[in-house]
Design a protein around this nucleic acid. Sequence first.
DNA 1: TCTTAATGACAACTATATTTTACATTTAGT
DNA 2: ACTAAATGTAAAATATAGTTGTCATTAAGA
Lengths: 65, 65
Amino acid sequence: MAKNIRLKVARTQMDLSQQQLADAVDVTRQTISAIERGDYNPTINLCIKICKVLGVTLNDLFWEE
Amino acid sequence: MAKNIRLKVARTQMDLSQQQLADAVDVTRQTISAIERGDYNPTINLCIKICKVLGVTLNDLFWEE
DNA sequence: TCTTAATGACAACTATATTTTACATTTAGT
DNA sequence: ACTAAATGTAAAATATAGTTGTCATTAAGA
């Protein structure tokens, strides 16, 4: 996976730290960090939770044409 | 997770069996079956692969408002 | 400076996605 | 009725998502 810049942008637009987002979706900071760095392949349920907290959709953060 | 009817519909619209879709995205038939039944929580990369084969987007199959 | 919050990164562990093997049921064609 | 393809489902094994603990670096404020 490539770096997920869109996630980082959406998170900072909501003025949330990695830790705060992690708490909101009930995972660890390391998991959020790894997703932003593009080091891995989260589950769809986690992606959905993240999107809901950030007020965006799956396509906004995880779909590439 | 709930049953994923939209996936089943999109698959049948492309006239693919579970086995054919599984082959196309390089997983087993059982994995496709489990996703359609809603028994679990696939990874985002697998969701993306499935969407691309079926000519739809993540929101089409996996996003609920 | 000094301190604290935020982040990158990694190793070892645990939880769970996915595979493999296998059996049963349903559906469509002959 | 028979056959083959498609599907539901389950148990045991394997691969990997996500945790826990830890250390280093950077940026901002006092």
